[in-house]
Design a protein around this nucleic acid. Structure first.
Lengths: 228, 228
DNA sequence: TGTACATCAGTGAACGCGCGTTCACTGATGTAC
DNA sequence: TGTACATCAGTGAACGCGCGTTCACTGATGTAC
């Protein structure tokens, strides 16, 4: 009830996270520094300790935000296309994934890049958020499967064993082959997006327009899944 | 001709790079520090300046080494399987890629992870080395194509435009669709390996045995290329 | 064989810097009477 | 309405640390005569 916040930063907690994100975008996640954030916000570094117990805790909050933001983008895109064909829905989700990565490259770095030195992500906090984007894929593929529009194969015993953790943690009761296809989709698209974001395609692509390649790969994926 | 080197480090230049690699493995690339290297080698930090003009130059040398080491591993694996079927050759190359990544995760980080803060890779030095692994793939696929064992599609105009840089830089005269397939292979495999290395599969795979998934994905890739 | 000299890899001190975190504090805000 | 008090977000100084890089130097090694 006390309006104690400074005039400059009505919501300092959010301002700290936003500044952290912009600092990561500018200098990379490992260079994230509390003093740097404080400098940009025109406060002193110890003030941050009123909102986050330490630097690592702030990083964890940023990572969770990033995962949630990514899966939210996918969910939104799916909702906007829920009346269209399953293949269109998949295309829209995967496009949402890539577009989110391109427009939030600093957060993409945070969750899919090199781990930050001296930072150990607390799995119990991270994993639930991290599961979001895969969950979206699994849901759509599940619907397509129910409609018999999806070519689902029986996973080999080794594959099944590998996916056991997911099945247990998420109380998944659908066809395991759907998890496999969702994973395969993620892998395929992640490969391209990750190379694109980290600049590893610069040896072969003059301009940054990798869109054509992306669309081709998505189509190859749809072919593989037998989606029409 | 002067055997001036200290007894402890007969080849200090190599020792510095090796120590740098182990430091990267332990603490991540951004934490690489000249003083840390010197400490481990029991020399003083300024001594390093006899071999590398500065920190960034050392990083560049490490990156070039990493690219060369990766493509060398792929070439070796190809040479060891040159008498077998094309699909076996592709499988062996892609396995070499993954195995190199798993056994050289610190160097993998260096070339495919988040860019290092305050470090700008000099493209003219990096790119030739970076092209190596893709070149190996293109060569094998080229041979398979000549043998009419490969299902090569005509790339769309947009795709062609995207690959123009590669074609020009490498004086490539083969079928452009082969570059596309090589790129697609790299993308597909990179997606899985990158997720595996950076620990992003931990949400779904209890054990670290992702091999089954890898083999399935390679097979899907071979299917797509029509390789028998 | 012996001596004066050149070389140059590695040293040690110093520079200026930024970092995370702690601590006692201040001073504006709101509350109780 | 006025006064004494409690709260607590943010301050400013300080801690001990590691960093890249510079610089004049040392001292073992090899060379020329």
């Amino acid at each position: 009830m006390r309006p104690k916040q400074s005039q400059q930063h009505p919501n300092l907690q959010e301002a700290i996270k936003n500044t952290a994100r912009s600092q990561i975008a500018a200098k990379g996640a490992p260079s994230l520094s509390l003093r740097g954030i404080a400098r940009e916000l025109d406060i002193t570094a110890p003030a941050i300790y009123n909102y986050f117990p330490n630097r690592n805790n702030l990083v964890t909050a940023l990572i969770v935000d990033a995962y949630n933001s990514l899966s939210e983008a996918m969910v939104k895109s799916l909702a906007a296309n829920s009346k269209r064909s399953y293949s269109d829905q998949i295309i829209s989700i995967l496009n949402a994934y890539r577009n989110w990565a391109l427009s939030h490259s600093e957060e993409y770095n945070l969750i899919f890049g090199t781990p930050i030195p001296d930072y150990q992500a607390p799995m119990d906090i991270i994993n639930p958020a991290a599961a979001g984007s895969l969950t979206v894929l699994i849901e759509v593929l599940g619907l397509a499967y129910q409609d018999r529009k999806l070519n689902v194969k029986e996973p080999s015993p080794q594959l099944l064993k590998m996916m056991q953790k997911w099945i247990e943690n998420n109380d998944y009761s659908g066809h395991p082959g759907i998890i496999h296809l969702a994973l395969a989709s993620w892998i395929h698209i992640h490969g391209l997006v990750s190379l694109e974001i980290f600049g590893n395609l610069s040896a072969c692509s003059e301009n940054t327009d990798v869109t054509a390649l992306f669309e081709t790969e998505v189509q190859a994926l749809l072919d593989r899944m037998g989606l029409v």
